[in-house]
Design a protein around this nucleic acid. Structure first.
Lengths: 253, 253
DNA sequence: CGTTCTTTTGATAGCTCTCAAGTCGCGTGG
DNA sequence: CCACGCGACTTGAGAGCTATCAAAAGAACG
């Protein structure tokens, strides 16, 4: 829980990484790819965007990327690893807001209050692309495509937050969770039906608003019913059709 | 449920209202006021923004303002009345996403998919300020203040959606609902502790993810405990301190 | 190889939902 | 003006889903 001293504001203070040579293969799957890699844009503008980007990390499991209440300076795209965002309520219980996989953007909900409204922590080894938000907003006035992309990202996050707000059964929530993970992993080159959970059962429960025990029981039953095969954090989706059907109630498709 | 023919796309098709002379007193409480009324801006730019605005309505109780799946063209600020946004799930049950009071903005969650992801319906007589979004985005590239305002509005909506997603008791949800209404009415010139509910118990339940009967019971108990005085849709907050305390669990302040 | 955390499994309790009936208010029409 | 009818709201009883408490099994780590 306690952050390592000196890393209290890591998203703004961390040393920039040397180029690891993997930029391009990552960028093509990132949420900013259409802006970063836009082929129709003049090279001068593209380089302006790339100048904004700082590769930071690695953050190790349990390290915080930002804390609730810290001044907002930057958003960041996940390059590698998984980030969990969460808040701790009055009674000390954790409420997980979301998990962010490679290519996804953290910090968007901090714009309105100029402070991060939640904590962000690395669930495994995480590297990030950091974008100074003031600089990015300024650039967006000259790059309508970038502005559009930011509007779209923000708007999409409104919808994501609304999804889990519905009153669904434990089964529906769990199915939606698994299917969503699959749909986010697949386009990034991971297997759609076989992946590793990077978060604990407790985290899943705090995200889905279920007790960790309920998570365990539902997964057990899903396995008994032939929907999935699960061993520790290794997940294989077996009956994808039925899972999709259960998840559809939540995901609306 | 069925929209009056010819009004299927009212937000984009409705006739523009004549100026009712009340623009300024409304605008000062609207979410765009800082942009619309910005005093530091050149008059040329201000007039550009005002040109974007179309006053539309009135919509009467039960009339739809937009439908789920309709092409997204515009966002709108509520001028008068209350708007409810909702979706209907597979089993035919309504999930209310939010209530929008005068000064608040609807349609922001439609940007990412270029379609409205939910329905919007008037709970009483509603008038709106319509903003063509493409035009507004274009203007935002020349008005950094407007762009900032849009980013902030979008970002704030992410947080609003996340609030109700937590697992709170019926009492906490209801207290948060009442306190939030009060806090939104007050700065718009309404009484902070005495106001009318514009929505049915059913709507409140579908918003808070409670059965309508539970809403009724909780309100009854709040009254028995001296927290509020309620008669039909007339609400008076009595013990504001205790209500705030209960709501704080949800609202995080 | 012991310690610790994670996960699983079981038993019980509790909150809220569902079903059902009854009350109230309001608009309509006689 | 009043009776009627419909929808909104209230109130009660019982069931169900999930949380909580408790304990044990299993994996990870030094």
């Amino acid at each position: 829980m306690v952050s390592v001293s000196g890393l209290a504001l890591p998203l703004s203070e961390r040393a920039v990484m040397l180029d690891d040579g993997d930029s391009l293969s990552f960028c093509s799957t990132c949420a900013f790819s259409s802006a970063c890699l836009a082929e129709g844009l003049p090279k001068s503008k593209l380089s302006e965007l790339h100048v904004l980007v700082e590769h930071i990390g690695p953050f190790h499991e349990g390290e915080h990327i930002f804390h609730e209440g810290s001044p907002f300076t930057a958003i960041a795209a996940v390059r590698a690893g998984t980030v969990k965002t969460y808040v701790t309520d009055a009674s000390g219980r954790e409420q997980v807001h979301g998990f962010f996989l490679p290519g996804e953007v953290i910090g968007l909900n901090a714009i309105s209050h100029a402070r991060y409204p939640c904590n962000a922590i690395a669930l495994d080894t995480v590297t990030l692309c950091r974008f100074s938000f003031p600089a990015m907003a300024t650039l967006a006035t000259r790059m309508p495509g970038l502005q559009q992309q930011l509007f779209r990202l923000l708007s999409a996050d409104i919808g994501k937050a609304a999804l889990l707000a519905g009153d669904y059964s434990a089964d529906e929530r769990m199915a939606a969770f698994l299917v969503t993970l699959s749909r986010r992993y697949a386009p990034r080159g991971y297997s759609a039906n076989h992946f590793q959970l990077t978060m604990a059962r407790t985290d899943i429960g705090n995200y889905l608003r279920l007790a960790a025990e309920t998570v365990s029981r539902v997964l057990r039953r899903f396995q008994d019913e032939g929907l999935v095969h699960i061993e520790r954090r290794d997940v294989e989706l077996i009956d994808r059709a039925r899972l999709d059907a259960m998840a559809a109630v939540v995901l609306r498709n």
